[in-house]
Design a protein around this nucleic acid. Structure first.
Length: 155
DNA sequence: GCCAACGTTGGC
DNA sequence: GCCAACGTTGGC
């Protein structure tokens, strides 16, 4: 079992949007950063993921999802009308992948980054050290600390 | 292969 | 709105 954190701007796609998808699941497209992509390629079915809302006030972990499909080509890279179209990516050798995630557990309220910064044991989180990385690993210790901050309810 | 210029992310 | 961090691009 591995743990991850994935960022999203809720104006584009939020935790609530994920919960409202059919079967509460959706593909996670639009990742155009190699390190983030490589992290997605390491994901296994059943891995758990913090869904993090960025660029809003306050930025916060909004919910817990799980990986329901491992990495496969992100179709939006081939769509000239898509925001994340990549003309350099060849269909026979796709550059960008996505995974499918499903809303899995609800937090009784979001966990803002300001709170996370104050918690002993979270000092080394990638969230603080690599501020622009949109898909990042979370250690088992960090996961345990963070989920312990809230009541976690099954969906 | 280096590096300056530029664009994007994202917290504050 | 600012600006730091940092990834990408392109000239040389």
């Amino acid at each position: 079992m591995q743990y991850w954190l994935m960022k999203t701007e809720p104006e584009t796609f939020s935790w609530e949007d994920l919960k409202n998808c059919p079967d509460r699941r959706e593909h996670w497209d639009g990742i155009r950063n190699y390190l983030a992509r490589n992290h997605m390629r390491q994901m296994a079915k059943g891995d758990l993921v913090f869904i993090y809302h960025s660029v809003v006030k306050p930025p916060a972990i909004a919910g817990i999802a799980r990986v329901v499909r491992t990495a496969y080509p992100d179709h939006t890279q081939f769509d000239p009308s898509a925001k994340y179209y990549d003309p350099k990516s060849a269909p026979d050798n796709p550059r960008w992948d996505m995974v499918d995630v499903q809303a899995f557990k609800e937090l009784d309220r979001p966990i803002p980054i300001t709170e996370l910064k104050e918690i002993p044991g979270l000092e080394n989180m990638a969230l603080f050290r690599m501020s622009r990385l949109s898909v990042q690993p979370v250690t088992a210790e960090e996961w345990k600390i963070i989920t312990g901050l809230r009541k976690v309810k099954a969906l």
